[in-house]
Amino acid sequence: MPEQRLTDTVLTAPEGVHVVEQVVLESRGVPYRELNARIHGLVEEGVSAIRLNGLIGQRYIGTNLRHPVHLTIDGVPGNDLGAFMDGPTIEVLGSAQDGCGNTMNGGAIIIHGSAGDIIGHSMRGGEIYVRDSVGYRVGIHMKEYESMRPVIVIGGTAQHFLGEYMAGGILIVLGTNLGSGVAHPSHYVGTGMHGGAIYLRGRVDTNLVGKEVGQMPLGPEDHLILQRYVGEYCRYFRADAEALLRGPFTKLAPLTKRPYGRLYAY
């Protein structure tokens, strides 16, 4: 595949905007297995930034990558973007498909557009930021462990079963596309949830919330969480943090760590 090395600015490197040497891969039409093998090869070489141009639906980009490499994707990555990954930052200049961040352990995925279903399925660590909206079952079975606490921030809205079976972590939905007074459209929010917290900005119809979760008042710690992650969202997507943080936010949290404790006859 055509490949060149050039110097470019990386927008969202952890330290902010800075200039790096970047390898550019012209990815159009390259099968995913070949493309991913090349990415892994470059990372092994010690390349710290890779840009994929013309990506159209290739799956598993960044899967199981473990270095703090910066991947910029110009195009639409296919399903399972960043599955099992632990450390890289992936920035998508466009939308992403299903399963992005599947069972991810660490790193960040920043999507300048929308994303599909099951974003962050079972993720244990790292952060996912989606500028616009997402599909069904987002954040399903996210879990936290010791110091690892996964975070998903969605600018628009989510479809049904948001945060189902959630066992830990933070899910923030900003609802920037909701008209004034219009409630979040997601049904069964937090069904079976037994850990973590969901923050929804704007009106929430409590009938649509899973029966295992309750609405909790926001404490000082919640405001710190929102300031930090909504702030990050605004830095990535150049949004107005002050306006978004005005809320109002609804916090959903599990009523018990043992939602299914009394099911059995013994």
Binding site: I118, H121, E144, E164, Y165, A167, K257, R258
Partner: peptide
């Protein structure tokens, strides 16, 4: 068990009936 499964101690470990992906 919590360290091995990488989940918080004392919380139910629920395996959903289907894989949701």
């Amino acid at each position: 068990v919590s360290r091995t499964r990488m989940i918080p101690a004392g919380s139910d470990a629920l395996s959903p009936a289907p894989h949701h992906d």
